[in-house]
Amino acid sequence: MIIIGERINGMFKDIGGAIKDRDPAPVQEWARKQEYNGAHYLDINVGPSSAEPVEAMKWLVEVTQEVSDLPLCLDSTKYDAIEAGLKLCKQPAMINSVPAEMPKMERVFAMAAEHGAEVICLAMNEEGIPKDADIRVGLAAELVATADAFGITPDMLYIDPLVLPCNVAQDHGPEVMRTLREIKVISDPAPKTTVGLSNISQGTKNRELINRTFAVMAMANGLDSAIADACDDELMAAVASARIILDMDIYCDSYVDVFKQRNR
């Protein structure tokens, strides 16, 4: 499973402060730490309250690339900020994210095609997040078909079925699992899938246990990647184990280390 390290996000106090003071140290420390622990991409988010998202994004991209060669996942609702970031990325990046809404899809897919970027696609539209898996899958199919029209192949897309906290929307759980399975019948090659892992445990106790349990269940249903805390060792060990059980990696006694060190 592809781990998109979530930690470089202005929502976190240290990163928010770093952006404000233009102090690269905390950003670079997290970039190194997440890479060391096995992240495959680094999510870059200036945070919800940034006053100057475009400039902040450019700065974050630059300081992160000074210490890490991992591809970046540019995370913003401000597409100008993403576009500015894309221009600075040294290798093909990921755009996070676009819903199944028309003007937004056009804007995002056009810039993804231009920069060869992958795109996280949200299975929602103007009406919000559907509960029913069929509707989620329908939205995913719309996203795939629209991207196709822009010359973007389905394997460049990561469909996020959208996860709600399990303490408030328990009934969404089985629908998300079914969505993950059925997304694979949209096309060949199939689009990939992703989730914002920690959403499932918002406001609960035992957050890490819920996160990793959800991660392995979702993997069994076809989940390809997650935006997650790469420094959660238990999570990484659980993901490595799930990969063994699903015959995605070849077992050896040191399989957890092998999984974490793959990028090193």
């Binding site: 070849i250 077992y251 050896c252 006694d253 040191s254 280390d257 092998v258």
Partner: peptide
């Protein structure tokens, strides 16, 4: 044995 093969390399 592929598992031993991999472990030995490690």
């Amino acid at each position: 044995d592929i598992n031993i093969c991999k472990q030995l390399n490690i």
